[in-house]
């Protein structure tokens, strides 16, 4: 469990980092938090010829929260985003989800943007970005582009990031007034990747009826699966929604697979249960109540 040989680069400016990445091409890999990359290297499951360590590049660790949402820089650690009151105020789902990401020591190093680029369909942050309709900003020597979540996740562990590009930030939009969010998951052990998990966002109308309801499901498809259940939920108050029908609708839309931890059947069942729990909590939050 020692990595194969690679060239190490430690650029100190963004321009230098992009130059190195451009020259490295497909053999280049960015090191930020290293919580996924280093194990992959040590298991010799990945063998990039160039490691570009961006930790010395200034200006990439920003967390900018405003009325429109939260922009998270490439070097912002999970823990920093989790603890940011401004980020939590602008988009509460960030903190709700980050508390479920692994363990504190991993969150101290791992980065939100790194998790998005890693694009593990069992991870929480891709589901959050997908649910909120956020985007990832990709920079290269030739310029920048902003890729929406729906186009960013292209398959298991696959994203729209091209060789020579660095994901410099991600944007998590805020939700309109009278909205609420929640994240429910079941993991085999505390902090593990979820067997199944559901992020939910609910918006209420002026009469506190559900006006919009969406969920994003993890571990049940090649990418986070976003299901709009506004039709099943609204426009009704949460108490009079046929939640079994909502669970059914979510179960219909996902394509879980079985593995050594859970059967496909269990994942499908569980996702329905968790979707209802998350939507109910989100609806509570939208009413400004404790769930």
């Amino acid at each position: 469990m020692k990595p194969p040989p690679f060239h190490y680069h430690g650029p100190v400016t963004l321009g230098e980092a992009l130059d190195v990445l451009a020259e490295a091409g497909p053999g280049g890999k960015v090191l930020a938090g290293g919580q996924s990359l280093i194990p992959l290297l040590n298991m010799r499951l990945a063998a990039p010829s160039h490691i570009v360590d961006v930790n010395r590049v200034p200006g990439l660790d920003g967390i900018e929260a405003g009325p429109s949402g939260v922009r998270v820089g490439a070097l912002a650690r999970h823990a920093a985003v989790e603890r940011s009151p401004e980020a939590a105020a602008a988009q509460p789902l960030l903190r709700q989800a980050l508390r479920l990401v692994a363990h504190p020591v991993i969150r101290n190093r791992g980065t939100v943007v790194g998790s998005l680029v890693h694009a593990d369909p069992s991870a929480e942050m891709p589901a959050v970005l997908a649910l909120l309709g956020g985007s990832v900003r990709l920079a290269s020597r030739t310029g920048e582009r902003e890729v929406p979540a729906a186009e960013f996740f292209t398959g298991p562990m696959e994203s729209a990031l091209r060789p020579g590009e660095l994901a410099v930030s991600a944007f998590f939009p805020a939700l309109p007034a009278r909205s609420g969010t929640a994240f429910h998951e079941v993991a085999r052990r505390h902090g593990d990747y979820a067997v199944a998990g559901v992020a939910a966002a609910v918006a209420l109308d002026e009469d506190f009826r559900i006006a919009a309801a969406r969920v994003a499901c993890v571990s049940v498809g090649p990418v986070p699966v976003v299901v709009d259940v506004t039709g099943e939920c609204g426009p009704r108050p949460a108490a009079s929604v046929d939640w079994e029908a909502v669970a059914h609708a979510v179960r219909d839309r996902i394509e879980p697979e079985g593995d050594i931890h859970a059967t496909a059947d269990y994942r499908r069942h569980l996702t329905g249960v968790l979707a209802v729990r998350a939507l109910l909590d989100a609806a509570c939050a939208a009413r400004g109540e404790e769930s």
């Binding site: 085999r188 067997v195 931890h261 859970a262 059967t263």
Partner: peptide, 11 residues
């Protein structure tokens, strides 16, 4: 016994 196993037993 895992939750998935218990679910299967219930089914």
């Amino acid at each position: 016994i895992s939750p998935s196993d218990l679910h299967a037993l219930r089914q």
